[in-house]
Write a protein that binds this DNA or RNA. Structure first.
Lengths: 194, 194
DNA sequence: CGGCGGATTGATGTACATCAAGATATGTGG
DNA sequence: CCACATATCTTGATGTACATCAATCCGCCG
């Protein structure tokens, strides 16, 4: 990613603790950010307190580009996290385009995930996505069950139950509740794309 | 929209009939398009035949920008439609950025619509969005109930029933089944953002 | 006028939410 | 390092919003 070269030289590194807010809904969107270490979620709250998660971001990824002047989503560190900021004026058009297209792709993936799919399908795809990022058949799950639920449009109990079922059938194994490996990848693939 | 100037001078106008495909899933994404007249939907099919609609596009809007080389969504005319194409090489960075940010915003709106909201909330927001585009309190509904359903992640019967209920309560009135006006805007707003 | 795709309406089933306890993990101060 | 406190996760019982299945109705075009 050629973006790296810029982020190294520009602006400052910042550190956030677990759950700490990086920016809020309604803030002016003057910067974009790269995750150096840790993990970030973008979040939006509706009037009655329901939460929608826009996406999760891992080291090397850019987040915080929004179309509007005012942010629709807030960003929060999921765990201790270091990021670097790039003011929008200093960002090249190239960086903006790349980020925008990347975000677009991400949003479309997410859309496909939410529309008219069963809890099992959603969770299966989610696990496969996570596993892609990490090394072969072994992945970390940095976010809470609640985060997963809010990302997938489910109740957290449903997430827990489906994960339970997947374990029963030995499709995946959880070392801890935040770390898993996929045993029957083909079954998971079939569940995901049903 | 400064984009107009370009689209006037470049490339050719094309005409499509109702339901006709403009491009298919998997096609190379070498162009973006502007709607001249009519209306367009972007569509994606899952293995088992379920359909997800990515968005609807009306005159003056740009569609067809995708992050990947191969298109994830197909595009179809909803009714007789004229469009103009712009090859990606000829498009300015400015056009690309504008489109990308616009699409991003659209996708995020759509995401907010799909996550953990009731049928009533979804349909209320949808109607309000449509009404925004048109003149005061009177709007056309160019797409079928099935299209609405696939956009909102609902069954078409549910869409029909909720629209029925809205009419009973005189929140909206349908002149024909493709044209409506909003009577009790404030109630609709409350339903939408509950 | 007759036929056909789209829309409405009704009866029934089910996947998932919600409510409610417990069990496990995580962290803090003694 | 342990004991307590608090957050997170799991598991169970019950309710409900929406899907599904199945007619019937309506508007549109030949």
């Amino acid at each position: 990613m050629p973006v790296r070269a810029w982020t190294q030289t520009l602006d400052l590194a910042l550190t956030y603790g677990s759950g700490q807010q990086i920016y809020a809904e309604g803030d002016r969107a003057h910067s974009v950010y790269t995750v150096v270490s840790g993990a970030v979620r973008t979040v939006r709250h509706s009037a009655d307190g329901r939460r929608q998660i826009g996406g999760f971001y891992y080291p090397g990824e850019l987040f915080g580009l929004e179309a509007e002047e005012e942010r629709l989503f807030a960003a929060e560190a999921i765990r201790p996290t270091r990021i670097r900021s790039i003011r929008r004026e200093t960002a090249t058009q190239r960086v903006i385009i790349e980020t925008a297209l990347q975000e677009l792709s991400r949003a479309n993936q997410h859309l496909a995930m939410l529309g008219r799919r069963s809890a099992e399908e959603k969770i299966a795809s989610f696990l496969l996505d996570l596993a892609l990022a990490g090394p072969a058949h072994q992945a970390a799950l940095p976010m809470s069950r609640q985060d997963m639920a809010d990302y997938l449009g489910l109740a957290l109990e449903t997430v827990s139950r489906v994960l339970g079922r997947f374990q029963e059938e030995e499709i995946v194994v959880f070392a801890s509740c935040r770390e898993f490996s996929i045993i029957k990848r083909f079954r998971l693939l079939r569940l995901a794309s049903a």
